[in-house]
Design a protein around this nucleic acid. Structure first.
Lengths: 231, 231
DNA sequence: ATTAATACTTAACAATATTTAACACAGCCT
DNA sequence: AGGCTGTGTTAAATATTGTTAAGTATTAAT
């Protein structure tokens, strides 16, 4: 499970707005919808913890472009995506000058929007390595990789050792996919030799014990390749 | 050579359904049309080799939403696009909660549909896992390829090894069709040489033993070509 | 009908993974 | 300093997974 991403959505068309909001929430993004530019600005100042803004350009009270300018004054780095009608090239160009990260012309597919959000977040997350401090939801467990704490099992909160936490974090980042042994060894143990590989075995055993209270969570071995965390 | 993309289309309006089907086929998508939700579900379970589902929401026998729910139980990853009348917001919202990937309001243009299909396939092909995490119904058996578990036989739940699961998954994806030896070897063993082919023989034997409790399920050999899983 | 190619099954073998326990080491406390 | 504690490594015994080999059976070709 990924860290919660918070989105600010400014869209005056109620139909489209609600639809987008529901869709984004369903996709795992914690989304707030504002019906016009002013409301969006207030929401942004009040609760300044958004990771990304999606702004319609044509809006009452305050249009998307000037909203973006104001937001930029408060936060230089936050990514902004514009929604714009098909033939509004001038608006788009204006938007990019402010530092928009992307724009989408209406009508657009939901897939396309998600695709761009993910592309931007991927780029941003590389800068401040946000996957290193994520909180993961693993069935009944919650794993805080920064604090190295696994909670939710019968023992309540369990402090993981550094190696345990690093290995579990790698597994979470590759959930339902194969985490290659070599990759994990080079990442955590630096050198991937026979003895470190045995050491890793031991840590896999430890993690399995830690996660035993939820039968749906499993770390399965992929012979000769690595391990797969099943959620 | 590109791999054929297979679409499941569920639409009760015969005119629209046939039109769509013909159009999609003309565009290179291998499309099956089902006239109601129940038929579509049967088609899906029987031959779980679809890459994407396009479901009308209003259909007799089983509506698109509950069809989507049932399909989701079998395959967590397969993309779903809903077709919906313009003023049916609630349905769409409900659909998103299940994990629909996109929706299109009727009436729509064919280009629009193609555009969205392609947008989705582009994303899916990046994290290549649409048929990898499916649940297959094989007679009395249930095969969870993600967890590598085969249940329903006299022994209850049986954990399959990685190779067993990979091979069975390939067979399932080509159910009632020939799975070419070369293809399976290149997919699972990477290299298709004599020794790996012998190894594959051994795994076929193992799978046959695993599936012996249902006489209707059979892995038959197609001499010189490969194997065929009969359901 | 004979032969060659391909497939089937079992068993031996090799490689890899699992688990428990002993060990080494560093930090901390008194 | 001496002992305690937590962390990580090494060792050893066992289990699982995958490959190779060998003998037999089946199918296709001549």
């Amino acid at each position: 499970m990924e860290k919660k991403v918070r989105l600010l959505l400014a869209e005056d068309d109620e139909n489209l707005g609600l639809l987008l909001k529901e869709y984004l929430i369903a996709k795992g993004y914690d989304t707030d919808l504002y019906p016009d530019g002013e409301a969006a600005y207030k929401g942004f100042t009040k609760n300044q913890q958004y990771n990304l803004c999606i702004l319609d350009i044509m809006m009452p009270k305050k249009d998307g472009i000037s909203l973006a300018k104001d937001i930029r004054l408060l936060n230089m780095d936050i990514p902004i995506i514009f929604l714009t009608a098909k033939n509004m090239k001038e608006d788009v160009l204006e938007g990019f000058k402010i530092g928009a990260d992307d724009y989408i012309t209406k009508p657009f597919s939901m897939e396309e929007l998600i695709f761009r959000i993910e592309a931007i977040l991927r780029r941003v997350s590389q800068d401040n390595s946000s996957t290193e401090n994520a909180i993961y939801q693993l069935g009944i467990y919650t794993f805080d990789s920064r604090k190295q704490i696994l909670s939710g099992g019968e023992e309540g909160e369990v402090k993981l050792t550094t190696k345990e936490a690093e290995l579990l974090r790698l597994l979470c980042n590759n959930a339902n996919k194969v985490l290659e042994r070599n990759f994990a060894l080079k990442t955590i143990w630096i050198d991937d030799n026979y003895f470190n590989a045995r050491s890793m075995d031991v840590y896999i055993t430890k993690l399995r014990k830690h996660l035993k209270d939820d039968p749906k969570i499993e770390i399965i071995n992929v012979h000769g390749k690595g391990y797969k965390l099943i959620l």
